[in-house]
Design a protein around this nucleic acid. Structure first.
Length: 737
DNA sequence: AGCACGCCGACT
DNA sequence: GTCGGCGTGCTC
């Protein structure tokens, strides 16, 4: 305390700057700049906050009220030797903060969430040959080393040289002692080699060549543009946007490729490697911390040219970003539904706009909003209609379950079973897709009719037989599977209703006991790493029948997969979500697109009770235009914007009962005119996940007082609350531009 | 977001 | 009698 006040005395008249700190406070804090330190907006610093030291971002002066109680003023502790965050990134932080109703400091935290990357990477010790000094005794091992360095006279790391020469470390050390090498320091090696844009590539033809030219053009033009590449699975859209990446690299700019986390696979990286002769730098959640730091630092220094990353890569401080690509543009995984709520696809468009650079959105099944933006001319549009090279589109058919019912207790129709059997006879693979984890979605007692329900939510508990648990898929509640009915106590009379992937395994093993059957589900132990390995193994042919949930739909190519069965295509069509049809179409299109990459005839069988449904019709006929037009038309007829709708106030909190009570009070008091739904803790998570709302007010304090003050504000705001209320706009790219 | 302070229940 | 729960308040 004493030393603090002494410091203050000494720095009276010192410069005071605003600094964003990682706290949920409305704006930057003020800090004194110690004598001899020079900081500018964007400088990354360390500042004291209460008892701890935190990273901070020196902010722009304009608009910042510098009047802080001088007795509170403290000094910046450290100015990191790190490239400052540029003005575009700072405006982006402000923009995201305002849009997502997140305190700017917490958005800044996403940029600075790399603990040790602010200090420069250390240089690495190395040995440089002193060519005129020869050792006195020349052993065979020493000879090998000398021969090697004669051909490569540059500096070597100790272990690198030992390895390359095939000798032990002590040989090298002996030579160094003899004066044959001198110690030097080398700059830290790049995390990835430089991509080679001039590498020979597979010829793009027709559609692809034209599309690539359009994108190269957009990059060459400088300035903001957004282009939607709409191309069916296998139409070569990746190769097409690689040309845009090449164009950016040729201009010495960096490129960012955003992918849903699950699509960031070995096979994607290999395709990139095929085109550019090097891998891109990766950025995703399960990277080793050291690698994260290196990538972050080298991106900031402009030493990494291309990043392929999950949504958080959008917050990397690129030195000279020249292009953003967002692949699988429609994918839900771009939405972050915790802490800072944002949709990386939309924020990427904003980032491109602020940075005045081109963005490419790619998808085989674009979101409705991107289609609308493309149709209105807001985005440029590139259509890839045909499959690339030899790959044929799979032959898609519906299986009418009313006419082809499964055997009693089963869920696979004879039609599908026969197709699977033929595929494995031919030595090919079959995929059975069922978007339902666990064994059975509902369990009931055959004696008293008791249904297992979640104590927190209104959802049924899903039996997970492998884990012997009843689980709630909404809140995570889990309890052991009881032997007796908890209601009437009868033993052994619990009935599993409906299929989950675990149950499908039983049925498949019964029909194909000899086949190698693999089940993939997002709740499998081992996490993302294991999953990626499994997917790669399957791609190599190490399974005959694959049973999987959503995650098999994304990004993976299975060259030997010639039969894809959708076990229950109707799931999700009846859940009341206005996007149900769009989502189902996207999902099933992607799943069935897993097949047919090799040019062999492949088959997609879609089990449904409503083969006449527009989603099924669009899938089977391949007439996507008609489907999109219909979806957009439906919304227009309903007087809704083409995407999203309404507003929701989400009441959540630690005390669920209390939050429910507040939700009820708010429902009663909210003016009817403002088209706001009030959701309590039970319905909110699901509605949010399903993207049912266009606007949402998140009352996500876990304190009663937060809830109360928001509610008071809401009620006081009267019939037109939008201005004064904090209403989060969930999806509305129209207002970006 | 983290962290300290402060006030009420089950335990060595 | 204390340990420890989480409600409340604060950080330039």
């Amino acid at each position: 305390m004493l030393s603090d006040s002494k410091k203050l005395e000494r720095m009276s008249g010192a410069r005071v700057v605003p600094v964003l700190v990682p706290l949920p406070v409305p704006g930057p804090y003020s800090y004194a700049v110690p004598e001899g330190m020079s900081v500018e907006p964007g400088s990354i610093v360390q500042v004291p906050v209460g008892p701890r030291q935190v990273p901070g971002l020196v902010w722009d002066e304009n608009g910042h009220a510098g009047a802080v109680d001088p007795s509170k003023l403290r000094a910046i502790t450290r100015d990191f030797d790190c490239p400052p965050v540029d003005a575009v990134m700072r405006r982006f932080i402000d923009w995201v903060a305002a849009w997502t109703l997140t305190p700017p400091g917490l958005v800044a935290r996403m940029v600075l969430r790399v603990p040790a990357a602010f200090d420069p990477e250390p240089w690495v010790p190395a040995l440089r040959p002193v060519l005129d000094v020869k050792p006195e005794r020349l052993t065979p091992a020493r000879k090998r080393v000398l021969e090697l360095v004669e051909d490569n006279p540059g500096a070597w790391t100790k272990s690198g040289l030992a390895h390359a020469a095939g000798v032990s470390n002590s040989v090298i050390e002996g030579l160094a002692k003899a004066g044959t090498f001198e110690n030097v320091m080398l700059p830290p090696p790049p995390v990835v080699p430089e991509p080679d844009t001039g590498r020979r590539r597979m010829e793009l033809a027709g559609d692809q060549a034209a599309a690539a030219a359009t994108l190269r053009d957009a990059v060459a033009k400088n300035g903001f543009s957004a282009t939607l590449i709409d191309g069916v699975t296998g139409s070569g859209k990746t190769e097409v946007y690689f040309e845009a990446v090449a164009a950016a690299l040729e201009k010495k700019k960096q490129a960012l490729i955003l992918l849903p986390e699950i699509a960031l696979t070995a096979s994607f990286l290999e395709r990139f490697h095929d085109r550019f002769g090097a891998r891109p730098a990766e950025w995703h959640s399960d990277m080793a911390p050291k690698m994260r730091e290196k990538v972050w630092r080298q991106v900031a220094e402009g030493r990494v040219q291309v990043v392929a990353g999950a949504r958080s890569a959008l917050f990397l401080p690129f030195k000279e970003l020249g292009l953003i690509v967002i692949d699988e543009e429609h994918d839900q995984a771009y939405k972050q539904d915790e802490r800072v709520f944002y949709n990386a696809r939309d924020m990427a468009v904003v980032r491109a706009h602020l940075g005045d650079l081109p963005i490419v959105l790619a998808s085989a099944t674009p979101s409705i909003e991107s289609r609308v933006n493309a149709a209105s001319g807001r985005y440029g549009a590139v259509r890839l209609a045909s499959r690339f090279g030899e790959a044929a589109l799979p032959d898609l058919r519906t299986v009418d379950m009313r006419k082809n019912p499964p055997a009693r207790g089963g869920f696979l129709s004879p039609v599908l079973l026969k197709a699977v059997g033929r595929a494995i006879e031919r030595g090919e693979q079959a995929l059975l897709f069922l978007n339902r984890r666990g064994y059975a979605p509902l369990t009931l007692c055959r004696v008293c009719g008791h249904r297992f329900q979640c104590p927190n939510c209104s959802a049924w508990l899903v039996e997970h037989r492998f884990r012997a648990q009843m689980q709630c898929h909404h809140c995570g509640h889990a309890e052991p599977v009881p032997e007796a009915c908890p209601h009437c106590g009868t033993l052994d009379h619990l009935a599993a209703c409906g299929p989950g992937v675990e149950r499908l395994v039983e049925e498949v093993v019964h029909h194909f006991p000899e086949a190698r059957t693999v089940m993939l589900s997002s709740d499998m132990p081992g996490g993302a790493k294991r999953l990626r390995m499994e997917l790669d193994a399957i791609a190599k042919g190490e399974a005959d029948i694959v049973i999987g949930t959503q995650l098999v739909a994304k990004g993976h190519h299975f060259p030997k997969m010639t039969v894809v069965g959708v076990v229950d295509a109707d799931i999700g069509l009846t859940n009341g979500d206005p996007r149900a049809a769009e989502r189902t179409f996207q999902l099933l299109h992607q799943v069935t697109g897993r097949a047919g990459r090799t040019g062999e005839k492949s088959l997609g069988l879609i089990q449904t009770y409503q083969p006449e449904h527009p989603v099924m019709a669009a899938l089977v006929s391949g007439d996507r235009e008609q489907f999109y037009e219909r979806e957009i038309g439906e919304r227009q007829r309903a007087g809704l914007p083409p995407f999203g709708r309404l507003a929701a106030i989400i009441i959540s909190g630690e005390d669920k009962a209390d939050a429910e009570k507040h939700a009820r009070a708010l429902r009663a008091n909210a003016p009817a005119s403002n088209e706001i739904d009030v959701l309590g803790p039970a319905e909110a998570p699901l509605a949010l996940i399903r993207g049912r709302y266009r606007f949402r007010l998140l009352v996500h304090g876990d304190r009663r007082s937060d809830l109360q003050s928001y509610i008071r504000e809401m009620i006081a705001a009267g019939p037109k609350p939008r201005g004064s209320l904090k209403v989060q706009v969930d999806i509305d790219p129209q207002s970006f531009l």
